[in-house]
Amino acid sequence: MPAKAMRTSFIKKEGVQGWLMILPNTLGLLLFYLIPIGWSIILSLFKWNGLSKMKFIGFQNFGLLFSDASFLYSLRNTFIYSIAVVPLIILFVLCFGVLLARDEIKGVAGFRTLYFLPVMTMPVAAALIWKWLLNSRFGLVNKFLGYLSIPPINWLTSPAYVLPSVIIIGIWLGVAYDLIIIISGMKGIPGMYYEAADIDGASGFRKFFSITLPLLTPSLFFILITQLISCFQVFDTVSIILGADPPGSLWNAACSVVMNIYQNGFVNFRMGYSSAQSFMLFCIVLLITLVQFKVQKKWVNYA
């Protein structure tokens, strides 16, 4: 009996302590993020140009969504983009994470910096050079393809190729952070596991698949979730290629949901409608995230 009483009082204490420890971050996020998000959800029920009196219109903004070709295109593009970029980034950071975590490579610290530079490149500069690299007539990419006898591709002006161009840039820009997470995750794997494997005479591949990969799953899960969320909100990458007002055909071929939200909210100042679009995006991303959290139990190894 006393043992049980002790335990309940302990759990009580644990509960209080837990709440106290999450309190500062939770309060901050509530005040500066969650309440504003709530505000913008409510806004989706109004017609408002940002300056006029707000006019309550019920769910009309949501009704508009499904007849708005630009929004539907942007949904399609965002899905394609995310489905292409997320696995490619994960594959890339796994391969290069293994290489860049190897301390026996001299100057590996310096090389890591190279992979970090894309996020340090000002988007304006990135836009200039990518437009040059992908230029159909004098771009380096087409010149390189020319050596392989591949005819020049209109990376920037053909509706079929703008989205692939955006995907290339998305990978270039997206690997930096994930590489850091992977490297720090690999460094967190206790060395004794490898020592034991060495004694058994396991090969490099064996070690990777039976030690490294399983122990990296918490990091991989984090990368998967955050990368999916950020891919669904892609903006910079697309605007590097499209700029402000691209030809309509290219806009339809590559615009993302957040570009649409920005266009409606802060160029056209249809704040209510852009809130409705954000809410739709929010629901989709939330759904995908919840599913991921359910599925993780099958493949993520926690201690």
Binding site: D245, G248, S249, R270
Partner: peptide
């Protein structure tokens, strides 16, 4: 009163015409 809205889609359509897609 909504200049930026129609300016935006006008620019896009006109660029389509210059590109030859319409």
């Amino acid at each position: 009163s909504d200049t930026s809205q129609w300016e935006s889609f006008a620019t896009r359509e006109i660029k389509n015409a210059f590109l030859g897609t319409t």
